[in-house]
């Protein structure tokens, strides 16, 4: 579960975003992209010292300004379950027409590795 796929899975979930300057944004995730740019709805913005607040209907945050995001603890479990279901479903579908095969997953092709090992080790 990569960090950015976790973020994708957090859509419509509440989250807390802290920027590098210490300001925090509490709201529900509307959308995000691979730069970690995000849009939130029903946001409570808090200054770094925690003394002033604003309520925003919607806001956009540039990914590069973010320090971290806090998401619901349950999200990770939900995502894991979802992945398991997807994997099982995939297995079931494949198993149906690979009758009698000894498991679908073999060793990766050998040729590629020996080809790569010829590059200087710093390139790998």
């Amino acid at each position: 579960m990569l960090p950015l796929s976790l973020l994708n899975a957090a859509q419509n979930k509440p989250m807390l975003v802290e920027l590098k300057n210490g300001e925090t944004f509490n709201g529900h995730l509307v959308n995000c992209d691979n730069f970690m740019n995000i849009t939130l709805r029903e946001v409570y913005q808090t200054t770094a010292d925690g003394e002033r607040f604003w309520k925003l209907k919607e806001c956009y945050i540039r990914g590069s300004t973010i320090k971290y995001l806090r998401v619901p603890d349950t999200l990770l479990d939900a995502v894991k379950e979802e992945q398991n279901r997807a994997r099982d479903a995939g297995r079931g579908a494949r198993g149906a027409h690979v009758s009698g095969g000894r498991g679908g997953r073999g060793a990766p092709p050998r040729g590629r590795r020996s080809w790569r090992s010829r590059w200087p080790s710093t390139w790998r």
Binding site: K20, G63, R70, V71
Partner: peptide, 11 residues
């Protein structure tokens, strides 16, 4: 207690 974090690498 803080829970589940997603931290941007630069920080």
């Amino acid at each position: 207690w803080r829970g589940l974090y997603l931290i941007r690498g630069e920080n």
